[in-house]
């Protein structure tokens, strides 16, 4: 790019009569491609840029939505957020979502992928490991609303499959899984682990395929056991994929909406409230559009900040690795 700019400046300074080719070079090459960005730029401006800014604008008003008048509130909505217990609860629950959608699935996924690839795959053949992989991935393909509806019924206190089974084996009063504030959040987390686990397994297994098999063979000849190979080869070799999984899943965990909507609607007593659902409630249930916009704006900032932190950590890890070699 810098090169083209340089040649361009030189050709402009050139006083010799230009050949027809020279005239074409007056503009740098890339300018001709800008028209291909036009549809994308317009579409992104209309569907993402403008709404995003409008949302921030709304967050500065008290507004009941629709035809109601907008009343200027400055940063009042944000000040209110600071004193709003539900707001803090919802972000606290985001941490639980990160445990259920990032931490547990990634750790489980690492172990499962390594076991399937490096242990079972070799002792029982590729077929066994690919069937198991497909099984773990199955929950990922069904619409999250369908998964939620199914689990909502399974965990139902009266007619749900789980409690009917529990009563059948003699448990007198099985817990009201989704209806009791003390069990609702752990139940939701279990469902999310079930949904999420297959994703890291598939990504990590694909990643392991690009690891040189000689590394494993050499380690095995040196007498390294499975755990040694896992620690010294598997984990460091697939670090880039681990970062990608961590980033995408963390962002997804902060944004989670569908499962909460179909499982608990944030209840009971806000014990499973998350920021996205809280802003939805304010938009369409409580008609506090300005307040909802403020929550959505804070959520956006949190997501961007967390993503930047993860990307920064990744860069640092990569740099350290390069210097190490």
């Amino acid at each position: 790019m810098a090169d083209t700019a340089l040649t361009e400046r030189r050709s402009r300074a050139d006083t010799r009569p230009r050949a027809s080719r020279g005239t074409r070079r007056r503009r740098p090459q890339w300018v001709g491609y800008l028209s291909y960005l036009l549809p994308g730029a317009v579409a992104f401006g209309v569907v993402i840029g403008y709404p995003l800014l409008t949302n921030v604008y709304f967050s500065l008003f008290k507004w009941r939505g629709g035809m109601a008048p907008l009343r200027w509130n400055g940063l009042g909505n944000y000040v209110d957020l600071l004193g709003d217990d539900k707001f803090w609860t919802s972000f606290g629950n985001s941490l639980a979502m990160i445990v259920a959608m990032v931490l547990v699935p990634t750790l489980l996924g690492l172990v499962l992928a390594a076991v399937l690839f490096d242990y079972l795959g070799r002792r029982f053949g590729e077929r066994v490991s690919s069937v198991l992989r497909a099984t773990y991935y199955l929950p990922q393909i069904l619409p999250v609303a369908v998964a939620g509806v199914l689990w909502n019924w399974i965990l139902n206190s009266q007619t749900g499959a789980l409690n009917v089974i529990l009563r059948g084996i003699g448990v007198e009063t099985p817990p009201n899984w989704l209806g009791d504030p003390s069990t609702a959040l752990p139940s939701v987390m279990l469902v999310l682990i079930w949904v999420q686990m297959g994703y890291p397994v598939v990504i990590f297994m694909a990643a392991l395929q690009r690891v040189d098999p000689e590394l494993y063979e050499a380690a095995e000849l040196d007498g390294a056991g499975w755990w040694d190979r896992f620690r010294a080869i598997t984990v460091p070799q697939i670090r880039p994929e681990t970062f990608v999984v961590t980033l995408t899943c963390t962002v997804a965990a902060l944004k989670v909406f569908g499962p909460i909507y179909v499982l608990t609607r944030g209840g009971p007593e806000s014990s499973t409230l998350v920021p996205s659902y809280y802003s939805y409630l304010n938009f369409f249930d409580k008609s506090q559009v300005g307040y909802g916009s403020a929550i959505a704006t804070v959520l956006t900032l949190v997501i961007v900040a967390v993503a930047l932190i993860i990307l920064g950590l990744q860069n640092r890890a990569e740099r350290r690795e390069r210097e190490g070699i």
Binding site: P51, F58, V251, S279, Y280, A296, L299, T300
Partner: peptide, 10 residues
């Protein structure tokens, strides 16, 4: 990465 909630009302 944006949450859809930050776009939905507009």
């Amino acid at each position: 990465m944006l949450p859809q909630e930050a776009l939905i009302y507009p």
